[in-house]
C-alpha cells in the first residue's frame, strides 16, 4: 500500500479530523449502526416501516415521518451525535435503483 501526500496535506487532514483514536472509535460505531441496517434481528422494516430513522452506535435513536422531522428530533435530543448518525427511510416497498 502506498500513500502519496505532502506533509501539508497530511497535516490538513489531521487538523480536520482531530484525535485519530477518537475517529477510529467513531467509525467503529458507524459500522455498528450500519450492521443494524443489514441485520435480520431486529429487522427495521418490521419495527419502523415507512419511517425515517437515525442510528447511532448501533441503536435507533430517533424516528420521524420526514427527514426534517427526524433531524429536528436528533438536534433536540442528541445534538452531539448529528455528525455521526446514519439516516435511512425504511421503505416497506423495496425500490429498484439504477444508478
Amino acid at each position: 500500500m502506498t500513500a502519496a501526500a505532502t506533509p501539508e496535506r497530511a497535516g490538513e487532514l489531521l487538523r480536520l479530523l482531530g484525535d485519530p483514536a477518537q475517529v477510529v472509535a467513531e467509525l467503529k460505531q458507524v459500522r455498528q449502526s450500519a450492521e443494524i441496517l443489514s441485520s435480520d434481528q431486529p429487522r427495521l422494516i418490521d419495527e419502523h416501516p415507512q419511517k425515517w430513522v437515525a442510528l447511532h452506535a448501533g441503536t435507533v435513536i430517533a424516528e420521524g415521518d420526514t427527514l426534517a422531522e427526524l433531524l429536528a428530533t436528533v438536534d433536540a435530543t442528541n445534538p452531539e451525535s448529528r455528525s455521526h448518525i446514519l439516516v435511512r427511510f425504511i421503505d416497506r416497498h423495496q425500490q429498484t435503483l439504477i444508478l
Binding site: 500500500m1 502506498t2 500513500a3 487532514l13 489531521l14 479530523l17 485519530p20 483514536a21 475517529v23 477510529v24
Partner: peptide
C-alpha cells in the same frame, strides 16, 4: 493506496 494514512493508537 491512500493520500494519507494515520495510525489510530
Amino acid at each position: 493506496s491512500a493520500d494519507v494514512v494515520i495510525p489510530g493508537i
